[in-house]
Simulated scan of single mutants.
Amino acid sequence: MALNRGTAAFVNGKVCKDPKLAKADDFYFGGLNIAGNTKNLQGSNVTTVNVDQIPGLNTLGISLVRIDYAPYGQNPPHTHPRATEILVVLEGTLYVGFVTSNTENRLFTKVLNKGDVFVFPVGLIHFQFNVGKTNAIAIAGLSSQNAGVITIANAVFGSNPPINPDVLTKAFQLDKNVVQHLQKLF
């Protein structure tokens, strides 16, 4: 929370607080022990703890998330444009992976169990999928106070206004009717 000694300054898009006005709650978040609602199409829920929840994270370059997964739920392919992510499984079994950039498109995957850790390098598309018959829980640390997230399918098929279906038909080698159907879903 970059405590400044004069006029208000913006750092990383957030106002630095006068140190005389700082309080313990600026460095606190409660409730990460509460499971998120996984009753949705993806069967997962991400509880974010970043600079928006803890103002004291401003300028510190860290944040974290709790991810809850229903059986066979997933955190779908996404990317964090401003952060590397390190994930630890607290409960359950997850199939995780990431894809390198366009030069090779190499897929790195692993099945993780309780206590296992996996790293997703900054900016790369990655995912987690609960391969177990029970709920799974993971905690992930991110190397940014606000990592950002771009969920690939949402961005491509749910853009507003929609991307011209001809572009997506050619890019994904899909039938135009399939593209239009996907755009309606998102």
Rank of each mutant, 00 (worst) to 15 (best):
M1A: 13
A2Q: 09
L3D: 11
R5H: 14
G6R: 04
T7P: 10
T7C: 10
A9L: 14
A9E: 15
A9G: 08
F10E: 12
V11Y: 08
K14Q: 13
V15T: 12
D18W: 02
D18G: 02
P19Q: 11
L21D: 15
A22C: 13
K23P: 10
A24K: 13
D25P: 07
D26Y: 08
D26L: 06
D26V: 08
D26R: 04
F27N: 11
Y28C: 10
L32Y: 10
I34V: 15
A35E: 10
G36R: 06
G36M: 03
G36I: 00
N37Y: 06
T38M: 00
T38P: 06
K39D: 14
N40R: 06
L41A: 15
G43T: 04
G43S: 03
S44I: 03
V49H: 02
N50T: 00
V51S: 09
D52M: 13
Q53H: 02
G56H: 13
T59M: 03
L60W: 05
L60V: 12
G61K: 12
G61M: 06
G61Y: 06
S63W: 00
V65C: 05
V65M: 01
A70I: 01
A70W: 01
P71S: 06
G73H: 06
P77S: 05
P77R: 11
T79A: 15
H80A: 04
P81T: 04
R82W: 05
A83W: 01
T84N: 10
T84E: 12
E85A: 12
I86K: 03
L87I: 12
V88R: 09
E91A: 04
G92L: 00
T93M: 11
V96H: 00
F98A: 10
T103Y: 10
T103A: 11
R106T: 13
L107T: 11
F108G: 00
T109I: 00
K110R: 14
L112K: 06
N113M: 03
N113H: 14
K114V: 01
V119L: 08
V119Y: 03
F120E: 09
F120H: 07
P121A: 01
P121N: 10
V122R: 15
L124S: 10
H126P: 03
F127V: 00
Q128L: 06
F129Y: 15
F129G: 04
N130V: 01
V131K: 03
T134L: 10
T134M: 00
A138K: 05
A140W: 05
L142R: 08
S143W: 05
A147T: 01
G148C: 09
V149A: 14
I150E: 11
I150C: 02
I152D: 06
A153V: 06
F157N: 03
F157L: 12
S159R: 01
P161L: 05
P162D: 07
P162I: 01
P162Y: 04
N164D: 15
P165L: 02
P165A: 11
V167Y: 10
K170N: 13
K170Q: 13
K170F: 04
A171F: 07
V179S: 02
Q180F: 01
Q180T: 08
K184C: 07
L185N: 10
F186H: 14
